[in-house]
Design a protein around this nucleic acid. Structure first.
Lengths: 204, 204
DNA sequence: AGGTTTTATTAAACCAGTTTAATGAGTTTC
DNA sequence: GAAACTCATTAAACTGGTTTAATAAAACCT
């Protein structure tokens, strides 16, 4: 009983980041917000563990509370990294989540990571019940789209060297917590290629 | 008077594609849908005309009814194409639209083109008034995000040759209506590079 | 701590695309 | 219908990455 209370309050506590994140998009009243939050379950991943693997059906939308997860696929035996999710972002394998089809991707922790998960059916129920939550859904999707677009922009309008430098500036610390060959893949390079670029930059 | 009536009915007529497009996302009742549609104004562009130029504030969300528009930026005097919009899609310069900041991009017609435009303030009013429209907004944004993501995926996980072939398959006809150097830019190549790839493919 | 595994660097040969510049084909324009 | 543009191709020299393989350095066991 006592520990249950502790547990409950600690759950609310740990959902504080998520709560703030939601409210940063739009006003949501206490009631629908608590309703929404009540559906989340906490998932703790150890370094190297997977949240989603290719072939699985994706039934949840995730919030990354702490840690780091990379989104990748295997192609001809090679790892192709599409994105790194670090603190305080929403993510899932959206194509699979939306279509209900098996995923072609992996979501795996590069370090010990805590995420919160909400079932698709619960998000839909919540969106049905609350216009405010639906708006939150729209705005968070809009933000995701803009981020993804700026990725497209960088991908085909800068040199690899510029993109690497940019990544260092824009996400300092990422290189510290993620192995370099994953960064290389994210930039569309081989580890060897990235190493050469780094060497070039050292000299300059 | 007579022509006014004609004009009105022709407006409804020409908005039929747009109406169907909206309904393909989610159910929307007649009333909010007509309210939404009532805000649109038709814009006709001749080949080579611009809808948006860098420096302008972006106040509208667009629907492309017919024709083709390319979304690009100028960088060191070079045209960098980010996207081609062809029939039956929603588009705008979203980063500028959302932030209210001046655009860093251009939206220009590669051929005679008809778009319908709705003001940002009118979309916001509509979303406030109708949960159904808000949902349409969310789902259309979600679709845009997924499309953009598949673009990211292709951009850094295929060779240029594969990406060109893919583009031919996926958007047949695009090469016919758009000059090749814009396709090259879209693929992150120079016109010379694309020409070489085409030559290589001819032989094979 | 010592042995295994994982990750990063280097070297050398190679290749796909760039740059620059010239040519040629197709369109516009008056 | 000739002149002026625009666009696509070709060639040649170059460059920034790849591939493969070997080595070195860190991290991870037990």
């Amino acid at each position: 009983m006592f520990w249950l209370e502790i547990n409950t309050s600690s759950k609310v506590d740990s959902l504080q980041n998520l709560k703030n994140k939601i409210l940063s998009y739009t006003k949501v009243d206490e009631e629908p917000l608590d309703y929404w939050l009540s559906f989340y379950e906490k998932i703790e991943l150890k370094k190297g563990e997977s949240l989603i693997s290719a072939g699985q059906v994706v039934t949840h939308f995730y919030y990354l509370d702490s840690g780091c997860i990379y989104y990748y696929k295997m192609q001809d035996g090679e790892t192709k990294v599409l994105e790194f999710y670090t603190d305080d972002v929403f993510f899932t394998d959206l194509p699979a989540y939306v279509k209900g089809a098996p995923s072609r991707y992996f979501l795996r922790a590069t370090e010990d990571t805590t995420v919160y998960a909400i079932k698709k059916s619960d998000t839909e129920k919540s969106f049905d019940n609350s216009h405010q939550l639906e708006r939150f859904g729209r705005l968070s999707m809009q933000e995701a789209f803009i981020k993804s677009y700026s990725r497209v922009e960088r991908l085909n309008s800068r040199t690899n060297e510029e993109r690497y430098v940019r990544l260092l500036e824009k996400r300092p610390g990422l290189l510290q917590r993620v192995p370099q060959y994953l960064i290389a893949s994210y930039l569309g390079l081989t580890p060897v290629g990235l190493s050469k670029i780094r060497k070039r930059l050292m000299r300059a």
